[in-house]
Design a protein around this nucleic acid. Structure first.
Lengths: 238, 238
DNA sequence: AAATTCAACTTGTATAGACAAGTTGTGAAA
DNA sequence: TTTCACAACTTGTCTATACAAGTTGAATTT
């Protein structure tokens, strides 16, 4: 008869505190219970509690201060988003007014033969979901983005409405897919005819190209994105 | 009479090991001495050694495996580095041949009046260490980078030689300063006269501008960097 | 009222020991 | 020779204790 492995005591404390922080029971700036209070509550030694707190500190959820306590920290921003920031003074006041327009709603296609990134056999077999969006500041196009993902186990993805108009919110909420990392490459290139047209620029004008491969918590599943930006009045933060 | 503060024992071990790893005494995949060996060597308790190792693990320098030991890890894609990758096929084979040349070795100056980022009073009072480097692929300039940091508690920084020719290796090994985060902005801009000259481009040619503010483990201390890249043959990975 | 002292908190560092559990090579058994 | 068991290592978890050092607020002194 094999004994059921019990979870380590420090992990119990760690998970309890993490859940409480993420669910908002402790808010940013709040003090967690002191180490001694946690010892009493869980009936364990202080070094064990400290192990849990030390890990939460590494995760970036809390910050500890000698003499004071463990303070809940502002959570780091998410890796998957490119944010558009006003560069010229005029545009700084307009940051919030960026609209997203679909030039191509999600469709299922074969992968392009000369696709930039190498693809696994599983990805090729699953075919490709493709979408094309453009972000506008008023009447002015700022960024054109093409997105590709393999149709692995994504039931009805092309038919469902996006949550919050966001690809990534939809992936996490409906499919439990979270972005865990990114490789991103940047270039400044002269606008070709297609880009000049999409972004209302002259041919040859500088365009910022961002090529990204996002890794996820699902093994072998990636999101590929190619973005082209007019950075006359905006910068791209990544 | 004030007693001289002695450094914590775990910090001694931590610094020794970190220096050895960064300087290449232990290579990627190597096992560090076991915890017990380190205890004997330094004459300290095992939990103290474990504190040091745990911190190196958080930093991403090592990985620990139960039953085996502490293994030197592949250096994390560290946030502070911009890596230059060959874009055209010809250049992919030349990746390793990027040289760094100083156009300006570190000097102590006043901060520029119209500096891009807002500065704290402490930073202004400490004055500014400025350096300018250019990265070459053979005879061809790829990236020009200007770096600014405040001269806070950085004894002799302008006089010391760089470790591994690297600003960031020098900061961590000699001053215990680690980069913990980054805000980076990207733009594609037309080359002005200065850039055209530095990067051997025509005026108006597309140049990738990367503006970065790096946060560190030292409160209120930042590293500012402005990089300008010719991305005809290379991409910048960040 | 203002300044100082101090007690009671907090986290940081360190010790010495114990047992659990994963890894590896050696030597005995098949 | 191959397989297996085990000893001798490794790191992981946990305890109980001690003192150092930073923070805070209340009591005391000025």
């Amino acid at each position: 008869m094999k004994k059921l492995k019990e979870t380590a005591r420090y992990l119990t404390v760690q998970k309890d505190l993490r859940r409480s922080i993420i669910e908002g029971k402790y808010k940013v700036g709040d003090l967690l219970p002191s180490e001694n209070e946690l010892c009493s509550k869980y009936g364990i030694a202080r070094m064990t509690v400290r192990n849990a707190l030390s890990n939460l500190e590494s995760e970036g959820l809390i910050e500890r201060q000698k003499g004071k306590g463990s303070i809940v920290k502002l959570k780091r921003k998410s890796i998957e988003l490119l944010s558009i920031k006003g560069f010229t003074e005029i545009m700084k006041s307009r940051e919030s007014k960026i609209d997203t327009v679909f030039l191509q709603k999600p469709v299922l296609l074969d992968w392009e033969d000369d696709f930039y990134w190498p693809l696994s056999e599983a990805e090729i077999a699953a075919k490709c979901i493709y979408l094309k969006r453009i972000r506008m500041s008023g009447e002015k196009p700022i960024m054109m983005e093409k997105t590709y993902l393999s149709n692995m186990d994504l039931a009805n993805f092309c038919k469902e409405e996006f949550i919050n108009k966001s690809l990534f919110d939809t992936l996490i909420v409906n499919h439990d897919i979270e972005m865990t990392g990114v490789v991103q490459k940047f270039r400044a290139i002269p606008a070709n005819a297609e880009l000049a047209d999409s972004l209302q620029l002259n041919i040859g004008a500088p365009v910022l190209e961002i090529i990204r491969k996002l890794t996820t918590n699902r093994e072998g599943f990636f999101v590929y994105s190619f973005a082209y930006c007019n950075t006359d009045d905006f910068t791209i933060e990544a």
